[in-house]
Design a protein around this nucleic acid. Structure first.
Length: 437
RNA sequence: GGAGAGGUGGCUGAGUGGUCGAAAGCGCUCCCCUGCUAAGGGAGUAAGGGCUAAUACCCCUUCGAGGGUUCGAAUCCCUCCCUCUCCGCCA
């Protein structure tokens, strides 16, 4: 049973007027995701809704007028019994039509809430991961004169990566880091936060790790991805955040921002919790896919029309981290079959992992357009119109700390199983320049 | 966890059944006056939805959330949430 989502005042996920005016175009766009939107059925419901709404509003107007008349008559000391009788029928009829309207509205809302975001024209059409398009490659993987170990073996020989203890305490998909390796992850986090706040203009925020259903609805994890979340048994339940994107973006939920406050850039380090339901057998070795991991997240709120540029900029901020750490990576644009539910356009950064001999995702940077803003009712006052209008939201990992740790271990490994400390992290390691057993 | 107070427009704050979407003040916008500045005068100033060529009228909804009473609820009743004060407890 999902937590209560108090969002009945939110009209729709994709602009309702756009849906009505161009349902077929919307259906076409969503079909690129292999999402089936039955435009005809939707429009038929919309027509019913409109007719019923007009009827309800007319009946209400009649009732309101009568109520006022009664008030006036009473003030004059007249007998109001005949007026009461006239209103009675209006009331029963109104209740009946209201019931019908509510039913239709619920059906419409159910459809709308389940609609993914429209895709940007840049998004290549494709079925899955394999169809993502590489748009950039940076750095050369080191050539080793010994066989590369993966982080699990390196961690074991260092005696600083303990999956057995984690399993005893918590089960699978958890890890315990020890000593210098634990510190290395903290160093990565500190380094990233420092770069983003000092050089990229982000404000650091500390946020709750437990949130209400509304917040998850706002950023798009609910209602569709209920099963991916951990949640408590409280009533209403708390959800453990799957990413800092949720609390940080929702900071501006139901707010109207002034133009001068934009663009709003915020960065937070948080743990992230994911149930990983349905990923059985996937990445079971090591700490690639955990129930709990650390991440530094970048969030931007920008004026509509500036979000395309902002996505390039934000992705660049994440790239800087990998470049300063001298970690080879590639940048891919996710294809229509792989891009997330709420995303308009997404770049993934994939870091080179010698232990896997592959590039693996370490950052995902997305422009959500107005999708999240509509769900959260986050707006700005457009000076041009003087009216509140929806903002555009973006977020990206800058970057995932757990995977960054893996990347550093595997890319900086030496023949003897020790791990060199990247120059950028040395100030955060108290002078230590090599981690060895 | 216990006791009390309270949640109203960008803000402060009045309103305890009817002409209240809501006094007043602040803030903001425009205009007038004023030889700079200061002060003063006038007007305007919530959001969402429907209708529409319309950012014009008109209509509907919204006074923490949900439910109820009533012809009619910001105002009465119930449940919940949150904030503040005091006490307890505690990192």
């Amino acid at each position: 049973m999902p937590g209560k989502i108090n969002s009945k005042k939110i009209p729709t996920m994709i602009d309702a007027k756009l849906l009505r005016a161009s349902a077929a175009t919307v259906a076409e766009n969503l079909a690129r995701r292999r999402f089936e939107f039955d435009a005809d059925a939707y429009l038929a419901l919309e027509e019913q809704r409109k007719a019923l709404q007009v009827e309800v509003e007319n009946l209400r107007a009649g009732r309101n007028a009568s109520a006022k008349d009664i008030g006036k008559a009473k003030a004059r000391g007249e007998d109001i019994t005949p007026l009461l009788a006239a209103v009675e029928e209006l009331g029963t009829k109104l209740a009946a039509v209201e019931g019908k309207l509510q039913l239709v509205q619920e059906q419409i809302r159910e459809i709308e809430v389940g609609l993914p975001n429209l895709l940007h024209d840049d998004v290549p059409v494709g079925a899955d991961e394999a169809d993502n398009t590489e748009v950039k490659k940076w750095g050369e993987p080191r050539t080793l004169d010994f066989e590369a170990k993966d982080h699990v073996d390196l961690g074991a020989s260092l005696g600083m990566l303990d999956f057995d203890s984690a399993a005893r305490i918590s089960g699978s998909r958890f890890v315990v880091l020890q000593g210098p390796l634990a510190r290395l992850q903290r160093a990565l986090i500190q380094f990233m936060l420092d770069v983003h706040t000092a050089e990229h203009g982000y404000e650091e925020v500390y946020v709750p790790y437990l949130v209400q259903a509304d917040a998850l609805f706002g950023t798009g994890q609910l209602p569709k991805f209920e099963n991916d979340q951990f949640k408590t048994t409280d009533d209403p339940p708390f959800y453990l955040i799957p990413t800092a994107e949720v609390p940080v973006t929702n900071l501006e939920r139901e707010n109207i921002l002034e133009a001068a406050e934009l663009p709003l850039r915020r960065v937070a380090h948080t743990p992230c919790f994911r149930s990983e339901a349905g990923s059985y057998g996937k990445d079971t070795r090591g700490m690639i896919r955990q129930h709990q991991f650390e991440k530094v997240e970048l969030v931007q709120l920008v004026e509509p029309g500036k979000s395309d540029a902002a996505l390039e900029e934000l992705t660049g901020h994440a790239e800087v981290i990998l470049e300063r750490l001298n970690l080879p990576y590639r940048k891919v644009i996710l294809c229509s079959g792989d891009v997330g539910f709420g995303s308009h356009k997404t770049y993934d950064l994939e870091v080179w992992l010698p232990g896997q001999n592959a590039y693996r995702e370490i950052s995902s940077c997305s422009n959500y357009g107005d999708f999240q803003a509509r769900r959260m009712q986050t707006r700005w006052r457009n000076p041009a119109s003087g009216k509140p209008e929806l903002l555009h939201t973006l977020n990206g990992s800058g970057v995932a700390a757990g995977r960054a740790l893996i990347a550093v271990m595997e890319n900086y490994q030496e023949a003897d199983g020790s791990v060199m400390v990247p120059d950028a992290l040395k100030p955060y390691m108290g002078g230590l320049d090599k981690i060895s057993a």
